[in-house]
Design a protein around this nucleic acid. Structure first.
Length: 305
DNA sequence: GAATTATGCCCAT
DNA sequence: TGGGCCTAATTCC
């Protein structure tokens, strides 16, 4: 599920197993041959997520910028460090992939072509990052390019604040509140605007607004500043939880047993997202789905005013 | 088995 | 406004 939490997990996996190593960078698909050649053979010195974008910095200063879009995903093979102590190592992260391996247990990976390492690329692999022990394959990204340091700085500057990539969350929250409360655009659209706040996608958008009991159509300018700040604080909580948990869970009312169930049952995870026509879990009113700026918006007209 | 759908966002028209 | 990315789970016959 490539909202912000997913990209932070990908950056974490890259830091654990590929940062600090000299990498072979290639484009098995061929569409990124020139970009791959620019960083091939260099040491990867950093991997950072900002919002939904991933920035991989090489020793020359050049930066591989990746945006997964709707279909993109990274598949990891070889020696992998669990993302959380005692947890599973990553298999595939991004859009749903390799579901068979997920059923085996999240993180267990399907090994194509037997146990050979490195594995033969399967399908359209845009970029392969390979150390002696680990391979990361990128498929289906909407953006994948190599930038010089100045260009990379511009790309980062275009993004709003991200609670998981700032060292001053309070100041960043003020920036988000400024941007959210200065326009007449619906708050439901502003939360999806990556220059207002980075990393929120369609699920987090719907759930943040429900948790705040806020009507998605409220113009930004009409959102009280303390409500805007509370949205930032809640986003910081949900994002940190999503990064650790590996999926989006926004129902703070679930029992421990239900939280365990939610690992395999996505229908338990959210208040309104993907629940069109089902009764709101608080008011019983059927959850409404409508189009907002070409994306489906789920909300409860009784609770969110 | 085919059609639809999806967590995003860019670009051409 | 529509297509593109390039995939797989889900839903519909």
């Amino acid at each position: 599920m490539p909202e912000g939490h997913t990209v932070h997990r990908i950056a974490r996996q890259l830091r654990l197993d590929l940062v600090g190593r000299r990498l072979a960078v290639s484009s098995p698909q061929g569409r990124f041959a020139a970009g791959a050649a620019r960083v091939d053979g260099q040491v990867l010195v950093a991997a950072d997520a900002v919002g939904k974008q991933l920035f991989c910095t090489f020793e020359s200063g050049d930066v591989l910028r990746v945006h997964l879009g709707l279909y993109g995903a990274w598949d990891f093979f070889g020696s992998l460090t669990p993302l959380v102590p005692g947890g599973f190592a990553a298999g595939s992260m991004g859009a749903p992939r390799l579901r068979r391996s997920v059923r085996m247990g999240e993180g267990e990976r399907e090994t194509p072509a037997g146990d050979a390492f490195p594995p033969e690329p399967v399908g359209q692999v845009r970029v392969r990052l390979a150390s002696a022990e680990t391979v990361a394959d990128l498929r289906g990204p909407t953006a994948c390019e190599v930038l010089d340091p100045a260009e990379a700085a511009v790309a980062v500057a275009r993004l709003g604040p991200d609670p998981a990539s700032t060292d001053d969350p309070d100041a960043a929250g003020e920036v988000m509140a400024d941007r959210l409360t200065s326009r007449n655009v619906a708050v439901g659209q502003l939360l999806m605007d990556q220059s207002v706040v980075a990393g929120i996608g369609n699920i987090y958008r719907a759930e943040l607004l429900f948790r705040a009991r806020l009507d998605p159509h409220t113009p930004g300018r009409r959102v009280p500043r303390d409500v805007a700040r509370a949205l930032w604080d809640d986003w910081a909580v949900l994002l940190a939880d999503g990064i650790e948990r590996g999926f989006i869970l926004t129902r703070e009312d679930l029992s421990e047993a239900q939280r365990v169930e939610a690992v395999t049952d996505a229908t338990l995870r959210n208040w309104v997202y993907h629940r069109a026509g089902e009764p709101c879990l608080v008011s019983g009113t059927p959850v409404v789905v409508e189009e907002m700026a070409t994306r489906k918006l789920y909300w409860c007209p009784t609770c969110q005013v």
